[in-house]
Simulated assay, not measured.
Amino acid sequence: MTSDDRGSSSISTDEGPRSSRSEDVKGRSGRTKRKQLPLWQETILLLGVALILAIVIKTFFVQAFYIPSESMEPGLILNDRILIQKISYWGDDEPERGDVVVFKDPGGWLPPSESAGPTNPIAQVMAKIGLYPTGGHLVKRVIGVAGDTIECCDDKGRLIINGKPIGEAAFVRRGDGKCDGPMPNNGSCDWRTGPIPEGHIFVMGDNRSRSADSSAKMCPDNATECVPGDEFVPADLVVGKVFVLLWPADRFRWNTRPATFEDVPDPSS
């Protein structure tokens, strides 16, 4: 081997590793210098993501409401904050007897002042994303579902659903009434309704003598300007089921369906 050969071999061997090391250093240096967004841009991005998540949660899962009247006492009182969940009514599932539900005004159930919703701009934005109650909604308990027949009342003042008296003393306030089902317009404890049409429900407030509910929409005997059927609420107007009494904190509790409705027979039986 000549001296020229040795020199050539030495140079070739030495340059390869140096080139490789140089490229490796550049690669590592490039990865560590990744550009970050300015703080204000990151803040806007995070707020945007939070807003989208809030809208998705409100649309499909959970929404906040408040109790606008005394109609659901003693369990839910004026200005209580509640949360409703919507999963139970996904697909073909509909409200069940005993559920406390929030539903949109079927038309003429609420005065204009309660249908308008919040007027404060901040409250309006919060209502859009489900963090503040919207107007035009009612909170009532489902008493009857499609096919049910409801009568008022037995000799103990209890409602009768499909021939079965139901004990509601644990959550109902009779107030000035002598039974669990007086119509506010005449205080009667002697009425009957049903069968409830398919895709509809019959609802009542727990404060039976202080609730403008389905019983108040029934046509009294010999009425000439009443439309039969207005007492039934379309099930597709139901927004969701109340599952939490959120505020005030000292009254926080989970809301569940009373066991008394489990013994109600099906309409066909």
Score class of each variant (00 low, 15 high):
1 M>W: 11
3 S>P: 10
7 G>T: 11
8 S>R: 07
13 T>P: 01
14 D>V: 13
14 D>R: 09
15 E>F: 10
19 S>C: 02
19 S>R: 08
23 E>P: 02
24 D>Q: 11
29 S>G: 15
31 R>M: 11
36 Q>E: 12
36 Q>P: 06
40 W>N: 06
41 Q>I: 10
44 I>T: 00
45 L>C: 14
46 L>R: 00
50 A>K: 03
51 L>N: 02
52 I>E: 03
53 L>P: 01
77 I>K: 08
79 N>D: 15
82 I>G: 13
83 L>E: 15
86 K>Q: 12
88 S>V: 13
90 W>P: 02
91 G>A: 12
99 D>P: 00
101 V>A: 10
102 V>Q: 02
109 W>C: 03
115 S>F: 10
117 G>P: 03
118 P>E: 15
119 T>F: 09
125 V>M: 09
125 V>A: 13
126 M>Q: 14
128 K>W: 04
129 I>R: 05
130 G>R: 10
135 G>W: 05
141 R>N: 12
142 V>K: 04
145 V>A: 10
146 A>Q: 07
147 G>E: 12
151 E>F: 01
155 D>K: 07
156 K>S: 07
156 K>E: 13
157 G>N: 03
158 R>G: 07
167 G>F: 00
167 G>E: 14
177 G>F: 05
181 G>H: 02
189 C>T: 08
193 T>P: 02
193 T>G: 08
195 P>N: 12
198 E>F: 01
201 I>K: 01
203 V>L: 13
204 M>H: 08
206 D>F: 03
206 D>Q: 06
214 S>W: 05
217 K>A: 15
223 A>C: 04
224 T>L: 11
226 C>K: 06
236 D>G: 11
237 L>V: 07
240 G>D: 13
241 K>I: 11
244 V>R: 07
246 L>T: 09
246 L>G: 06
247 W>C: 01
247 W>Q: 00
248 P>G: 03
256 T>E: 06
256 T>M: 02
257 R>L: 10
259 A>Q: 03
265 P>K: 04
265 P>L: 06
267 P>T: 09
268 S>P: 04
